[in-house]
Amino acid sequence: MEVRTIKVFTTVDNINLHTQVVDMSMTYGQQFGPTYLDGADVTKIKPHNSHEGKTFYVLPNDDTLRVEAFEYYHTTDPSFLGRYMSALNHTKKWKYPQVNGLTSIKWADNNCYLATALLTLQQIELKFNPPALQDAYYRARAGEAANFCALILAYCNKTVGELGDVRETMSYLFQHANLDSCKRVLNVVCKTCGQQQTTLKGVEAVMYMGTLSYEQFKKGVQIPCTCGKQATKYLVQQESPFVMMSAPPAQYELKHGTFTCASEYTGNYQCGHYKHITSKETLYCIDGALLTKSSEYKGPITDVFYKENSYTTTIK
Score class of each variant (00 low, 15 high):
E308A: 05
E253V: 13
E144K: 09
N309Y: 01
Y265S: 01
P241C: 04
T169N: 02
C182G: 12
R139W: 09
V160N: 09
H51N: 09
K44H: 12
S295Y: 05
P300Q: 12
N100V: 10
C190Y: 07
Y138D: 15
L200A: 10
L212W: 01
H74A: 03
D38N: 11
P130R: 04
C190E: 03
K298M: 11
Q123F: 01
D62R: 07
T266E: 12
G53F: 09
Q230D: 11
V42F: 14
A150D: 00
V3N: 13
G33H: 10
L173V: 04
T5I: 13
Y234L: 06
M170T: 03
N89R: 13
L119W: 01
S246G: 00
L151C: 02
A40Q: 14
S240Q: 05
H276F: 13
T302A: 15
L290N: 14
E296P: 12
T192H: 06
L59Q: 07
G33N: 03
G228S: 03
Y274S: 07
F148A: 00
K293M: 14
Q230K: 10
S213T: 03
N110G: 04
G267M: 14
Q98N: 14
G257T: 02
V166T: 01
V221L: 13
S246M: 00
M26R: 12
Q197P: 06
G288C: 04
T312H: 09
E281D: 13
R139L: 11
S79Q: 06
E264A: 15
P34R: 13
V185L: 05
K93Y: 05
K127N: 13
P131Q: 15
N187S: 12
E281P: 09
L151G: 03
R141K: 15
V243I: 03
Y36I: 06
T64E: 15
L114N: 07
T10A: 08
N61Y: 15
Q197H: 03
D77H: 09
S25E: 14
Q31T: 13
R167C: 02
E215Y: 02
K229E: 15
Y155N: 07
K7W: 12
N129D: 08
K218H: 01
T314C: 08
D135G: 03
A205V: 01
S104I: 01
P248R: 09
A205S: 05
P300D: 07
A177Q: 04
L283P: 02
C156V: 08
I124Q: 05
S240F: 02
F9C: 11
F242P: 00
I301D: 01
Q216E: 13
F56Y: 09
S246K: 02
A108T: 02
G53W: 12
Q216H: 10
V203G: 07
P130L: 04
F9Y: 14
Y284V: 14
T258G: 10
K275L: 03
R66C: 11
K293C: 11
H51Y: 06
Q175I: 09
V22E: 00
D77I: 02
A40E: 13
K298N: 11
L291T: 15
N61T: 13
L254M: 05
G143P: 05
P248T: 14
V236M: 10
E71L: 06
I105T: 04
Q134R: 12
P78K: 13
S240T: 04
C149S: 07
Y113D: 02
T116S: 09
Y137N: 03
L173H: 03
G210N: 00
L163P: 14
A136R: 04
A108Q: 08
N100P: 05
R167Y: 07
N110P: 01
T19N: 14
H90M: 12
D180Q: 15
C182S: 08
K293W: 09
Q31F: 12
N187G: 11
S213Q: 03
N89A: 11
E2C: 11
E168L: 09
V67I: 13
Q238M: 02
D287M: 12
A115S: 11
I286W: 00
N147T: 10
Q20K: 14
E68V: 08
D13Y: 04
V221W: 05
A250Q: 15
M1I: 09
T64Q: 11
D109C: 06
Q270G: 12
L121G: 01
H51G: 03
E144V: 05
L186M: 13
T260F: 06
P130V: 08
T43A: 13
L283E: 06
T266R: 03
H90G: 13
V67G: 14
T282M: 09
V12Y: 09
E215A: 08
K127A: 10
E125D: 14
D180W: 05
V3I: 12
A136D: 04
G202D: 04
C156H: 01
H273L: 02
T226V: 14
C190K: 03
V3F: 12
T211A: 06
P97H: 06
C227E: 02
N178H: 10
T76W: 08
D13L: 08
D41P: 11
A132S: 04
H276Q: 00
A87F: 00
M244R: 11
N111H: 01
Q230I: 14
V160W: 05
D38F: 10
P224I: 12
C227A: 01
Q238C: 04
T91K: 02
Y137E: 04
K95F: 10
S50E: 14
L59P: 01
T232D: 01
Y73C: 00
S171Q: 13
E68S: 07
K191C: 02
E52F: 12
F174W: 08
P97K: 10
R139K: 13
I6C: 10
Y138S: 14
Y208H: 14
F259R: 03
H18E: 13
V206Q: 03
E281I: 09
C227F: 01
C190R: 05
A231I: 01
H48Q: 10
G194F: 07
P78L: 11
C261V: 05
L59S: 13
G53A: 12
M245E: 00
V12I: 15
F128Q: 01
W94E: 05
A205L: 01
T159A: 14
L153Y: 15
N187A: 12
F80I: 03
S25W: 02
Y57N: 09
Y265F: 15
T116L: 06
R66Y: 09
Y297M: 04
L153E: 00
T120E: 05
F56R: 05
E308P: 09
A247L: 07
Y72D: 08
P78Q: 11
F9I: 08
Y137M: 13
S263D: 00
L121R: 04
F217R: 02
G272N: 00
Y311Q: 09
L17K: 12
Y274G: 00
N49R: 11
V221E: 02
M24I: 13
E296Q: 12
G228E: 01
V304W: 00
S295I: 07
S79N: 15
V22F: 05
G29V: 07
Q98K: 10
K191M: 10
Q251S: 08
K92L: 12
P249H: 04
I124L: 14
S310P: 03
N268H: 15
A146M: 04
V236Y: 07
N16M: 15
Y36T: 07
F217E: 00
T27E: 12
Q237D: 06
Q197V: 12
S86Y: 07
K218W: 06
A87D: 07
P60D: 13
A140G: 06
E52Y: 11
M85G: 04
L133P: 03
G210M: 03
T5N: 14
N16K: 09
N309E: 02
D62K: 05
N309C: 13
A87S: 10
L59N: 14
F305H: 01
F32N: 11
A150G: 05
Y274N: 04
K275V: 13
C182W: 04
K233R: 14
V236D: 10
P224W: 09
T302N: 03
V166W: 00
L173T: 03
V22T: 10
T76H: 13
T5H: 11
S279H: 02
I223C: 15
T64K: 14
I45R: 09
Q216Y: 01
K191D: 15
G161H: 05
